[in-house]
Design a protein around this nucleic acid. Sequence first.
DNA 1: ACGTAGACTCGCTAGTAGAA
DNA 2: TTCTACTAGCGAGTCTACGT
Length: 302
Amino acid sequence: MPRRLPPKGDFQPDFFAASFADIPIRDQRDTMERPFFSLAKKPRFDPIEYHVGDVWLEVSANPMFGMATIWDADILLWASTQITEAIDRGMPGNRTLKFHPHNLLKSIRRETGGDHYVRLRAALERLTHTAVRTNIRANGKKKFASFHWLESWTEVTDETTGETQGMTITIPDWLFQGIVMKGGVLTIHEDYFLLTGGIERWLYRVARKHAGHQEIGWQFTMRQLYEKSGSTARFSDFAIDVRRLVELNQLPEYSLYLHRNEQEEEVINFLRRSQLGVDDPNYQFERNPKRRLTPAAVRWID
DNA sequence: ACGTAGACTCGCTAGTAGAA
DNA sequence: TTCTACTAGCGAGTCTACGT
C-alpha cells in the first residue's frame, strides 16, 4: 500500500495551489434545493427527472459508476469554498484546483485511512461521469446547459514509490459561473459534513437556501419536498423518513416543525434556531463563521 | 472483520373515493 | 353494497457506506 501522507521535504507549493484552511464553507445556491444528487448510499442508476414550473433538470448516471451522491458533492463544496476564498483575497479564481487528497479529506471532515482514499477516487469517478442537463441559469440564447459535475480529474503519483503526490479537479463552467456570480454561494455550517443521512443533508441545504436568516423561516408541503428531493422512494416512505428527522430535530442551525394547513396537507416548517426564544429547547446561539484574514499554511497531519 | 446506520424495495393491510 | 383504484402505514429485508 503506497504511503498516503504527503512527503514533507519536497512539498511543492506551486503545484498545490489551493490550500486555505479554517474558512467558512460555501455552497453553490442553485445546487442546494433541487435534486442534483442521489440521496442514497446504495448506487443509483435511475435518472432524476425534475420538472416544476419553468424549471427542469435531468441527471443521468453512468452504468459503470452510478450517480454522484450528496456525499460526493462534498468535493464540490470544497471546490466552491476554495474558489470563493481565493477571489475574496484578490486572487484569480480558476476552474482547475490542485491539492493533496489528505488535505481535501481533512477539510470535508472525513477520515484519512486507506479505504477513504479508495472512496475518494470512486466519488471523483461518479462526479466525472454523472451527466446533468438543466435550464437553470441558461439565459439568453442558450436554452439549457449540459455538463458533468467534474470536467476531469487527475492523480499524480511518484513513479518509483507509487505514492500519491497530488490530484487536480476541473469543475464545469456552469458550476464555476454559479460560484463566481454575485450572491452565487451561501455559507453553510461546518457540522453539515457530519450529517450522515442523505435526506437530512438535503433538508439542511433546503433550509439554508430558503429559510436563511428570515425571522419567519420557510415552509414546504410534504409533497413539494418529495418532488424537490428526486427520491426514488414512494411518497409515503419518504414522508416517514422526513417525520423521523423532524422528530429527531438535529439539523445544524435549523429547527423543524410539522403541522397541517387548511387543505389538511402536511407542512414542514424550517426555523432558524437563533430566531427562537432563548427559553426554547431548540434555541441555539448564532455562531460566527470561522474566518482568518491571512492565508493558512497547508497543515499536514501525521 | 464486523457491526451499525440509513435509503430504498417490496409485500401486506387498511382506509377512502368514485362508479356501477 | 360491492368492486376497483389509489394511497398511506408498517415491517422485514437488501445493500452500501462508514465507524471501530
